[in-house]
């Protein structure tokens, strides 16, 4: 303590400024890191597959049409069809058949039924999912209503087809595959009137 008190105080103040500035930079960096996670996470999912559900980060299954392969009639795979409507979308949405038997390599067509229960036109987008996820890379959708956005006028109903084939290379342990769709409202109007809620609940 040979220094004059003022010198020591000034020195500390200068040091405080440096340390504080560096710490603020760390804070800014970490705030940026959070946003950098958006592309990084996408990359980690594409390259490393850490998210498990195969395909692109959007959950969309690769839509490259498979080169025709011989149909493997010795095996049968049960494909279960599943439909969910996001709460923000006042639509009825269900598969026409609950499940079908297919041979690997066979080209199959199935249809879903969708109806707009509201009094306004709505654009929806279906997001597909395949369970178990290991089958995803062998499950090719040749044509699907989920490839584009779907517009339904008030009260309009539509059949929505899907054409798909399952690659015979798929592992033998997968005897049952579930193809599920969730229909989302692209217009981001998530609040439903109580009447719409009631209509959705009674329609199922």
């Amino acid at each position: 303590m040979n220094d004059a008190p003022l010198n020591r105080a000034e020195l500390t103040a200068a040091k405080n400024k440096t340390v504080t500035r560096r710490l603020f930079l760390v804070v800014l960096g970490m705030f940026g890191f959070g946003f950098a996670m958006v592309p990084l996470y996408r990359l980690a999912c594409e390259v490393g597959g850490i998210n498990g559900v195969a395909g692109t980060p959007a959950g969309r299954v690769a839509d490259t049409a498979a080169i025709p392969k011989p149909v493997d009639t010795s095996r049968v795979i049960t494909v279960q069809l599943d439909a969910t409507v996001n709460t923000g979308l006042p639509w009825e949405f269900r598969p026409l058949v609950k499940q079908i038997q297919v041979h690997p390599g066979e080209k199959v067509a199935v249809s879903y039924y969708a109806k707009n229960l509201s009094d306004q036109p709505i654009t929806g987008q279906a997001v597909p999912g395949i369970t178990p996820w290991q089958v995803t890379q062998h499950f090719s959708k040749i044509e699907c209503f989920c490839f584009t956005q779907q517009v339904l006028q008030p009260g309009e109903a539509k059949e929505m087809p899907v054409y798909f084939t399952i690659d015979p290379a798929v592992d033998k342990q997968y005897a049952t595959v579930t193809l599920s769709y969730t229909f989302m409202n692209t217009e981001r109007d998530y609040t439903l009137t109580p009447a719409q809620h009631a209509a959705m609940n009674t329609s199922h």
Binding site: V26, G29, M30, G34, F35, V38
Partner: peptide, 14 residues
């Protein structure tokens, strides 16, 4: 806190 609080702030901002 300095390392992780900004990440939460970013997430709720998104």
């Amino acid at each position: 806190l300095i390392a992780v609080m900004p990440v939460l702030a970013g997430a709720v901002t998104m």
